[in-house]
Design a protein around this nucleic acid. Structure first.
Lengths: 216, 216
DNA sequence: TCAAATTTTTAGACAAGCCTAAAAAATAAT
DNA sequence: ATTATTTTTTAGGCTTGTCTAAAAATTTGA
């Protein structure tokens, strides 16, 4: 149906669109995909001809309904495969991204349906990101992050905003995972850094980190 | 490591080599891969430069030790994924080939190790083909086919030589699968066709079919 | 054995996807 | 408002893997 490259561009545009609201710039795509701006221009024209994005010269792009659907389907596949890797094959959550990045391009509706059933129709991936349904709808999205908590508040980690390997390994090292209970013992209002208790141990956390941990 | 195309060529050459023993011809590869002979010549030169095949102009190719290993690794992945699709996702054996054809190119040693463990280190895929181990060794290979049986002999289906979808569907329709008990009721020595009993039902089978069913 | 048929290779072209370098447009700064 | 800077696009080129058409080598067969 669509090439590996096309799918990757659509996915990148989808994610950038989520962050920024308005049209996505050529440079932003290039940076995210670790490619050159000129390559992005080429591809964006191609996607535009296929009615997957709306592109106006010098003004960036946004996905069409069709383009959004393609992107969301890839994301659905990615996240289902991540669940498989962690739940069934016992990978840790910081090891699965690169493999899922490959698996997400396997073409077969039936495969994904059956995988979904096999996994028990999960609603979130191992990083806490929501898994869209077949129609491309996201059930819900996280909004509260650790840095929103006040002193003495208690939260449960339900996901992470950032999925970079280093960050995930940092969390693993300090026994932070989905379901972890986090108590705010102290908070420095000046820089937002906080002292928290996790799994019986105290830990000092910077705002950068606290901003990337979703809690309920 | 190696491109999708390279892997497919190596796999094709491996299979052709199994059938024919001596050097594999350009045309044979082209036919098997549904491509043109000129494309094969190009690729074969490339593989030769990478020391994956030995290529002598106008005389065909054969795999080097390294090339064989690459091919066998792809085959191992293909067959393990087929087991996953049938055993875990409940695909029928005639539906898995095209999907496994994609999955076999996923790059990750660790993934295959873990998949192998998850599946219980199977030795045969759903078609009865042997799954090579990590080192590239095949445990054993089938040798007796249904057409070798005499009247009143009883055999157990342990695999199929041909994995074409149509053939597999024919087998499914007549309740022939791995483990099926087959009794030869009558055999026409002239053309090798036979009347057999399978799952309590009588069935007339041509030599072409009987040649493609491995039994023990 | 030598012409005919077949197989294989070469030569040149093309699409996808990427790149560099330079030009054009948009944005920021004085 | 008009430079200066940044962003984006264009132009042209490269690699991979494919193709067609023609040339060369091999095999077949009379």
């Amino acid at each position: 149906m669509y090439s590996l490259s096309e799918e990757n561009y659509l996915k990148a545009i989808f994610h950038l669109q989520e962050e920024s609201k308005d049209a996505v710039s050529t440079n932003a795509i290039a940076e995210r995909m670790d490619t050159k701006a000129s390559s992005v221009t080429d591809m964006v024209k191609k996607l535009s001809e296929k009615s997957l994005v709306v592109y106006i010269k010098y003004q960036g792009v946004h996905l069409t309904e069709e383009g959004r659907l393609v992107a969301v389907k890839v994301i659905r596949k990615h996240r289902l495969w991540e669940v498989f890797l962690v739940d069934k094959l016992n990978f840790s959550w910081d090891q699965v991204h690169d493999i899922a990045e490959q698996l997400e391009h396997i073409q077969s509706e039936k495969l994904i349906d059956k995988l979904d059933t096999f996994l028990g129709q999960p609603k979130f991936d191992p990083h806490g990101d929501p898994i869209p349904d077949k129609q491309g709808n996201f059930s819900q999205t996280h909004n509260k992050v650790l840095s929103d908590l006040r002193v003495t508040n208690i939260g449960i980690c339900v996901g992470v905003k950032e999925s970079e390997e280093e960050f995930l390994q940092y969390l693993s090292r300090h026994d932070i995972g989905i379901g972890s209970q986090i108590t705010v013992l102290n908070k420095e209002e000046y820089d937002g850094s906080m002292l928290v208790e996790i799994a019986g141990k105290e830990l000092f956390i910077s705002v950068e980190i606290a901003n990337n941990i979703y809690i309920n």
